[in-house]
Simulated scan of single mutants.
Amino acid sequence: MTATTAAPTSTSATPRHLWTRTRGLLLALVVLIAGGIALAALHSDSQHGSLDPRSADQYGSRAVAQLLKGQGVSTRVVTTLDEATAAAGPDTTLLITVPDLLTESQQRRLRAAADSGGRTVLIAPGSASLDVLAPGVRAERPALVEPREPGCAQGAALRAGRADTGGIRYAARDENSGGCYPAGGLPTLLTVPAEAQGDTVLLGAPDILFNHRLDEEGNASLALQLLGTRHHLVWYLPSLDDASATDGGRRSFFDLIPSGWRWATLQLALAAGLAAVWRARRLGPLVTEHLPVAIRASEATEGRARLYRKANARDRAAAHLRAAARSRLAPLLGVAASAAHSPDVLVPAVSARLPAAGHDPLSLLFGPTPANDTALVRLADELDALEREVRTS
């Protein structure tokens, strides 16, 4: 017996069908890759990241480092906890860019180093780091970053005036803590004095340190006064590659995920929802499709009738019945096909052919929608009877 190859049917996937289905995804992928390449090209001259004093990018902090250098303040960039704690001292300002990225053991070591009498500046610390690095301070819901008045009597804030502040707001139990630039009644810049000497400054948002915002409002003055009170500035950029991050026991899965994963998950969920809406089946105009097998007309008619009945679409069923009857009656009555659906032409022709008939041609051929299924069946029978009478007359 020889093997036979099945003929392709309309349901078989052809290269044209595959291209039609996947071209949207391929186009989106190409746009995504092109956007990534463009962004990489735009930032190819930037060797460092955000809040890095070596970066000339708009979100870098090279400008403030250069201004501090002009005032005699040396800036040293460190990326490990050992370097940061070793450089801390009474004549040093320790700036921690991402305190929430640190583990609890790292935070405790930094807290011990901060007690040496210097200044510690925390950029946007949240609940994950305040309990250790700034005990007695609670983080509240963030506020929009915008120009704000000092709203306090501290000399640094008064000399700087309006500045682009906001972000996380803070509430302190210590009455000696000085809060400035309030938003909604809570400060976005908080200075917490140490038990001995030195202090800890909490800055709700890093915007005053960015290169592209340093020349706006009093941002430069405020940044220089916060970071230039000591002769040395240690700029600590926490890194996930720091070996000290594994000290103090095992970390949970969520501790290993970089900050912002919740926002990324929300974005992915939104993208998946939009893709589902885009690819979902939608109601639209009917299209013809070549069936793989021959189907009898009676079966197709019965199938369509069942669909109409399921949808309770008596109006469409009646309209199709009447339209088909008018199309068949028109050539029998000598009416042009273009006028077959005009009551002013077709009804007089029917009345002239059957003057004594008991039918009302206008109501039968152009009447209202049947009120129920029984009336719909009666309409179909009356249309058939009318057509038979016209053929035999």
Rank of each mutant, 00 (worst) to 15 (best):
H17K: 14
L18K: 03
T20Q: 13
T22M: 10
T22W: 12
L27G: 13
L27T: 15
A28G: 04
A28P: 01
V30Y: 05
I33T: 14
A34Q: 05
A34N: 05
G35S: 09
G35W: 11
G36D: 04
I37C: 12
A38N: 11
L39E: 12
L39P: 00
A41C: 09
A41Q: 15
H43N: 15
S44Q: 15
S44I: 10
D45I: 11
S46R: 13
Q47I: 10
Q47N: 14
G49D: 15
L51A: 07
L51C: 04
P53W: 08
S55H: 07
S55D: 15
S55V: 01
S55T: 07
A56W: 12
D57R: 10
D57Y: 03
D57K: 08
Q58K: 13
Y59L: 15
G60S: 03
R62G: 04
R62N: 03
A63M: 06
A63F: 04
A63W: 04
A63K: 07
L67V: 09
K69N: 13
G70T: 01
Q71E: 13
V73A: 05
V73G: 02
S74E: 14
R76S: 12
V77K: 07
V77G: 02
V78A: 02
T79R: 15
T80A: 03
L81S: 01
L81G: 03
L81M: 01
A84S: 05
T85D: 02
T85N: 00
A86S: 14
A86N: 12
A87L: 13
G89V: 06
G89P: 01
G89R: 07
P90D: 02
D91Y: 09
D91P: 02
D91R: 15
T92M: 06
T93W: 00
T93Y: 03
L95W: 11
L95Q: 08
L95H: 06
I96A: 03
T97M: 05
V98Y: 11
D100F: 05
D100I: 08
D100G: 06
D100M: 08
L102C: 02
L102Q: 02
T103Y: 06
S105H: 11
Q106Y: 08
Q107R: 12
Q107A: 07
R108W: 07
R109M: 08
R109N: 08
A112W: 10
A113P: 04
A113V: 08
A114L: 04
D115M: 11
S116Q: 14
G118L: 05
R119F: 06
R119W: 07
R119C: 05
R119K: 11
R119E: 09
I123P: 01
S127E: 11
D131G: 06
L133F: 00
A134W: 03
A134F: 00
G136S: 05
G136T: 04
G136R: 06
V137G: 00
V137I: 07
R138V: 12
R138T: 15
R141W: 11
R141N: 11
P142R: 11
P142V: 05
P142I: 06
L144E: 14
L144V: 13
V145S: 10
V145Q: 08
V145C: 09
P147M: 11
P147T: 09
E149G: 12
P150I: 07
G151Y: 07
C152T: 09
Q154K: 10
A156K: 08
A157L: 04
L158Q: 15
L158W: 04
R159V: 10
R159I: 09
A160E: 00
A160W: 02
